[in-house]
């Protein structure tokens, strides 16, 4: 029930965004978010966009994955 999915905002009309992921389109209410723009990634839960993706933080998380790989060799 709490399954939220990140989707790309394709278009916005009033309080409703048309979003897409893997070719699947869905409408989502923007009632809970301000300043959503076309091209943003939003987390959709039960028909509502509940949060916007922060691209810098996403990059940060993935750079930690790269760092642990780079440590290389045997077990740390």
């Amino acid at each position: 029930m709490c399954l939220g999915v990140p989707m790309l905002v394709m278009s916005i009309e009033g309080d409703v965004a048309r979003c897409e992921i893997d070719g699947v389109q869905r409408e989502a209410s923007l009632m809970m978010l301000d300043d959503v723009r076309v091209g943003d990634f939003v987390l959709i839960h039960a028909g509502f966009a509940i949060e916007k993706l922060d691209p810098a933080q996403a990059e940060e998380t993935v750079s930690m994955f790269r760092a642990i790989l780079a440590e290389g060799g045997g077990p740390t």
Binding site: M32, I50, E51, L53, D54, P55, T61
Partner: peptide, 14 residues
């Protein structure tokens, strides 16, 4: 850990 979507203060509008 899930900082790409979660902020310390959360979603104030919600």
């Amino acid at each position: 850990q899930y900082c790409r979507f979660v902020k310390p203060e959360g979603n104030l509008k919600a």
